[in-house]
Design a binder for these strands. Structure first.
Lengths: 211, 211
DNA sequence: TCAACTTACTTGACACTGTTAGGTGGGCGA
DNA sequence: TCGCCCACCTAACAGTGTCAAGTAAGTTGA
């Protein structure tokens, strides 16, 4: 009597088909440019069929966002093996920049758009699991650095320090993404500027190495 | 025969009325939430009347944006009196943060939205006039600091260095604006973080003072 | 004075968006 | 076989930015 299981599987399949189409289209054209009708047409369904699987467009976006956050967590998680916390912090930064360059539209939705309110309760990502929670990984790395006395004494709050590092790199990325076509500014290469920014942030927050 | 002048004046008046209404509504509700119909209703005209004065909604936004940039330039221009370039850089940073806090919606449109392509040629702001061109002011200040040997030797490019400072502060502001309602992150106060960021940026780019 | 022209503005629509109420039809359990 | 369930569709609604075609006032020239 596996009919129920099959039904569920089929439902999950079309759900996945919607997600796949939406992901691809969002990534190449941006969320704003992709309509529900276009997604539906792509998978050869009616627009309303999507609403049978997702409450609305926002729910669809949020779901994909969660997957993106997990992906980011995994990619940053590779940096975790480095023992030295400050060096690890650097690597997290460069990996983060790389993620933004590779998935610009994803980055835009994840960090440059006010995601509509939703509860994280049901979420599939586990907080504080460094394999999945990118922010948790950052905070943990910074906290290790603080514990090891690597940072200047005024930085005692791991969250504050983490947010400073995050913001600095995010600033380079987001400003470029939003304004790079503005001819008023004589833009420098983003990756280079971001690398410089990481240097500045580390130098500005750490204590000089004991010689 | 001043009829032509009167006509022009009347035209300019309703144009200004449109701009005033749009500015106020954009500032309080955000660009996305304000419709052409709503602006028209506010000034008791038909939506299409607006199109007689502005090509489309983007043109309206761009025009207001230019005014905002000029305002920012003026506000930052007050910092210009300080002689020491590094100290002036700090003051520009805090004034910039203050602008963002005071005019969050303006800030959002100015720096967090990909403004549709347009030529700056016709623009009323004068480039390199520090009273109006905020970015020019920043670059000039940074360049002075470089000339005075205040920055570390690897920073020779005024634009690059300016963009690093700008990005760092913008990162704090924009990340807060976009994600502050995200309960996943244990946010710290924006103004405090921004002040800390300025310290980090200055310390990370300047040479230590000669004792 | 009166016709021709200009122009600020309106009417009424178009194409598009996200979204929903109400149907349809095929497979399932009883 | 009856009736239910439910994935999916049809048809529409309200809202968006925008435009072609009109209108009515005012100016200009003979």
């Amino acid at each position: 009597m596996g009919t129920k299981e099959r039904r569920e599987r089929e439902r999950a399949e079309t759900r996945a088909r919607i997600l796949d189409a939406a992901r691809e289209m969002f990534a190449t054209q941006g969320v704003g440019a992709v309509t529900m009708r276009a997604i539906a047409e792509r998978i050869e369904y009616t627009p309303t069929a999507i609403y049978h699987h997702f409450k609305d467009k926002d729910a669809l976006i949020i779901e994909l966002c969660h997957a993106d956050f997990r992906l980011l967590g995994v990619e940053l998680g590779r940096s975790v093996r480095i023992a030295d916390p400050v060096e690890r912090l650097r690597r997290i930064g460069t990996a983060y920049v790389q993620f933004a360059i590779t998935h610009p539209h994803h980055y835009h939705v994840m960090f440059m758009t006010a995601t509509p309110a939703h509860d994280h309760d049901d979420v599939s990502i586990q907080k504080n699991n460094p394999e999945e929670d990118a922010y948790g990984l950052l905070v943990q790395t910074v906290a290790e650095g603080i514990a090891a006395g690597r940072f200047r004494p005024e930085f005692t709050d791991a969250h504050e320090l983490a947010q400073i590092h995050w913001s600095g790199i995010h600033g380079v990325i987001s400003l470029h993404m939003a304004k790079k076509s503005d001819a008023w500014i004589d833009w420098r290469d983003m990756a280079t500027t971001a690398a410089r920014m990481i240097d500045v942030l580390v130098r500005g927050t750490t204590l000089p190495e004991e010689a």
